[in-house]
Simulated scan of single mutants.
Amino acid sequence: MQVLWPQTNTLWGRVQDYIQLTKPRIILLLLITTTGAVWLASQGEPDMDILLTTLVTGTWAAGSANTINCLYDRDIDQIMVRTQRRPIPAGRIRPGQALGFAVVLAVAAFGLQTWRVNVLSALLEWAGILVYVLVYTHWLKRSSPQNIVIGGAAGAIPPLVGWAAVTGELSACAWILFAIIFIWTPPHFWALALMIREDYAQVGVPMLPVVAGSEQTAQQILLYTLLLIPTSLLLVYPCGVVGGLYALMALTLGGIFLYKVFQLFAQPEEVKLARSVFKYSIIYLMLLSLGMGLDRWPLMHTWQNVLVQKAVHWWG
């Protein structure tokens, strides 16, 4: 039985409903990783027209994918308490309206990115939409506990978009950025799944905690986190696009991440620990992306060179 919430009667209310369909909090994290890739590919001196255009079209493309996800999942969103107030299950936006909105966003993203930047980055944005909609939402989400692992490739595409926007190609370093997000995704989403396991069980979505239990999920989170730390350092060597500042931040952030995951591993049924891992995983990715930007910032390079020269003089 559909629960109908009060209709939105104002223009701003309607705008808010459509914004809610795009899941803006998820998009923000995607834009941060895109910015990090643009910053690295441009060696700390990005073309602002390329950066801003890519962020705008990335917002539209991700918003399109998220809207289609909301459209496809409206049946289970109607059942879960935490999602019943979303615009489609609440009856504030009709499915046809949502689909039209998603199509407009996808077409606009491709057109503007192709015109202002390049076709490769535009095609990659569309690849992100297709992977999220077809591979994750349609194929894997309701059929496999590995849905997040494979479907997580969609969230790892934005750094490829950022790199391609600057260089017009995809180097090995771009794929390392992809790998970082790809490996980060399971610990992030499985921690969330541990928090809301009952919701997923209620609607028959086979998230790993539902199928395998909390203990095995915590083990998998630990394994992926252990893999994430050395993967993040590949940007230092052999890629060489970042230096000591990023390496220090990556090791520090990774160490804190690992500490929190070990706590969860010791008490996998403790929801507060799962929530701590989930929240920190967001902070980790944001600060890691910031570390990339700071490391490539020309002024930061000047400071580092001065410090190195002073250290050499002191110890010499």
Results as ranks from 00 to 15, higher is better:
residue 274 A to N: 04
residue 3 V to G: 07
residue 267 Q to L: 12
residue 118 N to I: 11
residue 112 L to R: 01
residue 230 P to I: 00
residue 69 N to T: 08
residue 195 M to G: 01
residue 165 A to S: 07
residue 10 T to G: 04
residue 176 I to P: 07
residue 115 W to D: 05
residue 157 I to L: 08
residue 155 G to T: 09
residue 36 G to R: 05
residue 106 A to H: 02
residue 113 Q to N: 13
residue 249 M to L: 13
residue 283 I to H: 14
residue 33 T to R: 09
residue 117 V to R: 09
residue 18 Y to D: 06
residue 218 A to T: 01
residue 58 G to T: 01
residue 105 L to H: 01
residue 25 R to T: 11
residue 99 L to A: 14
residue 45 E to H: 13
residue 315 W to A: 10
residue 196 I to A: 00
residue 9 N to Q: 14
residue 222 L to P: 00
residue 148 I to K: 04
residue 94 R to C: 05
residue 169 E to L: 15
residue 103 V to A: 02
residue 118 N to C: 11
residue 4 L to P: 04
residue 160 L to N: 05
residue 95 P to G: 05
residue 225 T to F: 03
residue 205 V to D: 05
residue 289 S to L: 15
residue 147 N to Y: 08
residue 56 V to S: 08
residue 308 V to E: 00
residue 166 V to E: 00
residue 256 I to Y: 14
residue 59 T to N: 05
residue 58 G to C: 04
residue 116 R to A: 11
residue 23 K to H: 12
residue 81 V to Y: 07
residue 298 P to R: 03
residue 131 V to T: 07
residue 42 S to F: 01
residue 24 P to E: 11
residue 132 Y to M: 01
residue 127 A to Q: 09
residue 57 T to F: 07
residue 264 L to E: 01
residue 303 W to S: 13
residue 47 D to F: 10
residue 105 L to C: 06
residue 47 D to W: 12
residue 42 S to H: 06
residue 91 G to Y: 01
residue 19 I to Y: 12
residue 232 S to I: 00
residue 245 L to Q: 10
residue 219 Q to N: 15
residue 283 I to S: 15
residue 229 I to W: 02
residue 105 L to F: 03
residue 104 V to E: 02
residue 133 V to I: 12
residue 195 M to K: 06
residue 231 T to N: 05
residue 207 M to V: 02
residue 65 A to G: 05
residue 18 Y to R: 00
residue 265 F to E: 10
residue 206 P to A: 11
residue 53 T to N: 10
residue 158 P to S: 04
residue 54 T to P: 05
residue 93 I to M: 01
residue 311 A to V: 13
residue 134 L to P: 08
residue 38 V to A: 04
residue 133 V to M: 06
residue 291 G to V: 07
residue 51 L to I: 14
residue 90 A to H: 07
residue 8 T to W: 02
residue 65 A to V: 00
residue 307 L to Y: 13
residue 127 A to V: 09
residue 84 Q to V: 04
residue 19 I to D: 10
